[in-house]
Design a protein around this nucleic acid. Sequence first.
DNA 1: ATTAAATGTTGCCCTAAGTCAAGGTTTTAC
DNA 2: GTAAAACCTTGACTTAGGGCAACATTTAAT
Lengths: 189, 189
Amino acid sequence: MHPLLREYFQRLSPVADQDIEYLSPYFTEKTYKKNEFLLREGEICKYNYFVISGCLRLFTTNKEGVENTRYLAFEGKFGTSFTSLISEKPAFENIQCLEKTTVLRIFRDDFYHLVETEPLINKVYRNILESAYITTQKRIYDFQGADSLERVQWLLEHQPKILSRLSNKVVASYLGITPYTLSRLKAKL
Amino acid sequence: MHPLLREYFQRLSPVADQDIEYLSPYFTEKTYKKNEFLLREGEICKYNYFVISGCLRLFTTNKEGVENTRYLAFEGKFGTSFTSLISEKPAFENIQCLEKTTVLRIFRDDFYHLVETEPLINKVYRNILESAYITTQKRIYDFQGADSLERVQWLLEHQPKILSRLSNKVVASYLGITPYTLSRLKAKL
DNA sequence: ATTAAATGTTGCCCTAAGTCAAGGTTTTAC
DNA sequence: GTAAAACCTTGACTTAGGGCAACATTTAAT
């Protein structure tokens, strides 16, 4: 098993190496080119992805064509369209690589089978859901009522990697402001 | 066990009545007056609440004193500060009754004990987390980039009960707009 | 029932941030 | 290495919606 994934599991539930090795066969390594899509809006999401290197982003496009980035997963994080994975309905979001990206992916059905049968994976899943929920909530809470400067400052404090590593266009779509506004703000910081 | 709660469990996992009766002792019925607080910002949340009648709201207050309503639970729904319940850290949100409200409440530790030991409750919890996550995500997605008219229309379509049953002040704080703007919009609909 | 307090409405003004356009810079593709 | 495309920056203009004030209406408390 890839050390990053082993670390991930062990941080949640300290177990011996051999007790998680059996999970290895479920995960397949795959590398995607920069800008390649792992999932497009309307497709049913079939995998859960664990990022080994690179970066995934989940984003939606509204009727005017404006992109809205909802989640960014760097190395050591799981990323997928949970809403589609859970419901087995077409996703309303896209998953795309922002860099050349290597992932370990696991089939939806294998994943939920493990959630049902393996206490470790049940716990891992619970933890993913709990942190996804908390993170999302915190972001809504912190953003609602915050003006655009406060949003940029929030990002500087909480996820500086996003600001330093990704393009302004992506950052702006993550913050819910226009690239113009972001550019003006950065000039003032 | 209260029929509403039994229904809730059975919808998630069809089991015989006697197989869920053993959960009854964990839940205590309690009635709160209108506007009473079940949790205040800074306190550690000790219960998960299931609403039998009435309505709970979760809200935060920002530094300017503006309230931000983040979740509304009517009859037949669970409501609590999951971020505080999960982490056992002080809540940054308040839980308040908007009407005279009767709940069944269960202690945090009992709840998580059942999550660990009882497959039904494990599943119930997973389901609560999954739907909380999906709901939150959908709301962010649908709201980001939506102007205030679109937000009101979204509410009309998805949660009309909120518009008809709650005050404009609460509805506005749920939509992230001012009561002034909501009042003007309602005049035009 | 009476009064006070909270909530809702509406006009006027103002500001933050969006839009458009034009020019500069960086990245990508061959 | 060069051209094309994508991206960033900045100025000028526009606009949605916030803030305040004044008044109307509803709700709550005794």
